[in-house]
C-alpha cells in the first residue's frame, strides 16, 4: 500500500520540480548552436543515374552554426543558418560511375571512359545551406525550456553535371551521354516547424534537443543528351522531379542564454 502511494507522490514531486515557478529569469535572447542528422523521408530525384549528381542526396549530417532567438515575454522571433557538409565528390563520382555501369554494362563498355565532372574540381565538399526566420513561442518551467517555432527557410543545394563515354560491344559505335541542368544550384522555399526541449544546467547554459521537419518542393530537371558518334544523331530526354520533400531533423546542442 505504501509503495502504491509512493509512486504517485514521486510523480507529483517530479511534476512540481519540472513545472514549479522558475528560479531563472525568463529568457529574452539566446544563441543556440547544435549538430545533428537529417533524414529525408523520400528521394528528391526520379530514381535514375542523375540522382547521383544531386548534392543533397548524400548530405545527412548538419551543423546549426547560427541560431538566435529574441523573445518578448513568451513570443519571439528566431533565425537560423544550417550547413550540411556534402560527401566528397570522389565518392559521388564512384556512385555515378557505378550507376552508369549498371545501366549500360550489358551493351557497352562504360567503365573505359565514363566519368563525372563536378562544378567544384578541387574535390572538396560543397555544403548545403539552409537558412530561415520565423515566429517562436516558449514555455519555461524552472530548468526546463520548451520552444516551438515555424520558420520560413530557403534550402539551397548544388547539382553536378555528368558525362559518360560508352563504347558499344562488338561495333565501332561510340555513344556520349551528358546529364545537364541549366542552373547548378537549386533553391527551394521551405516551411519548417520544429521544437526544442532544453534543460538549463546553469543560468547561462542549457542543453537542448531539437526535432524538426523541413517541407519543401524542389523542381529538379535533368536533361539527358545521347549522341551517337557514327550517325552524329543526338536525342534528348528529360528527367523531372517535382514532389514534396520532408526532411526530419534531430539535433543536439547548447543554448547560451545572454539575457
Amino acid at each position: 500500500m505504501n509503495k502504491l502511494l509512493l509512486a504517485p507522490l514521486s510523480l507529483l514531486c517530479a511534476w512540481n520540480f519540472a513545472f514549479a515557478q522558475s528560479e531563472y529569469k525568463p529568457i529574452q535572447f539566446f544563441y543556440r548552436p547544435s549538430i545533428g542528422a537529417m533524414f529525408p523521408m523520400r528521394s528528391p530525384s526520379p530514381q535514375y543515374i542523375s540522382d547521383n549528381l544531386i548534392g543533397n542526396k548524400f548530405q545527412k549530417l548538419f551543423g546549426q552554426v547560427i541560431d538566435v532567438g529574441f523573445f518578448y515575454k513568451n513570443f519571439g522571433l528566431e533565425c537560423s543558418i544550417v550547413l550540411l557538409p556534402a560527401q566528397g565528390s570522389e565518392s559521388r563520382h564512384s556512385k555515378f560511375v557505378n550507376a552508369v555501369n549498371l545501366e549500360y554494362a550489358s551493351e557497352y563498355y562504360a567503365s573505359v571512359s565514363s566519368g563525372a565532372m563536378y562544378n567544384d574540381m578541387s574535390g572538396s565538399t560543397d555544403p548545403q545551406a539552409r537558412g530561415g526566420i520565423g515566429p517562436a513561442y516558449k514555455v519555461e518551467r524552472n530548468r526546463f525550456v520548451f520552444v516551438g517555432r515555424v520558420m520560413a527557410d530557403v534550402v539551397s543545394f548544388d547539382t553536378d553535371w555528368g558525362t559518360a563515354q560508352l563504347k558499344q560491344k562488338g561495333t565501332n559505335e561510340l555513344v556520349t551521354i551528358n546529364w545537364r541542368r541549366e542552373r547548378p544550384v537549386i533553391d527551394c522555399f521551405t516551411i519548417s516547424p520544429s521544437f526544442t526541449f532544453a534543460y538549463r544546467v546553469s543560468r547561462r547554459i542549457a542543453i537542448d534537443l531539437d526535432v524538426g521537419s523541413w517541407l519543401y518542393r524542389p523542381d529538379i530537371i535533368y536533361v539527358e543528351k545521347t549522341t551517337s558518334a557514327i550517325s552524329g544523331n543526338a536525342t534528348t530526354k528529360e528527367y523531372r522531379s517535382s514532389h514534396f520533400m520532408n526532411d526530419v531533423s534531430v539535433g543536439l546542442g547548447i543554448m547560451v542564454v545572454f539575457k
Partner: peptide
C-alpha cells in the same frame, strides 16, 4: 579489332562492325 573495350591489332577474324 575494335569489338572489345580497347582496339587491338589482330590477324584473326574481326567483326565487320568493329573493323579498323
Amino acid at each position: 579489332d575494335n569489338s572489345k573495350a580497347n582496339p587491338i591489332i589482330s590477324e584473326s577474324p574481326i567483326p565487320r562492325k568493329a573493323y579498323g
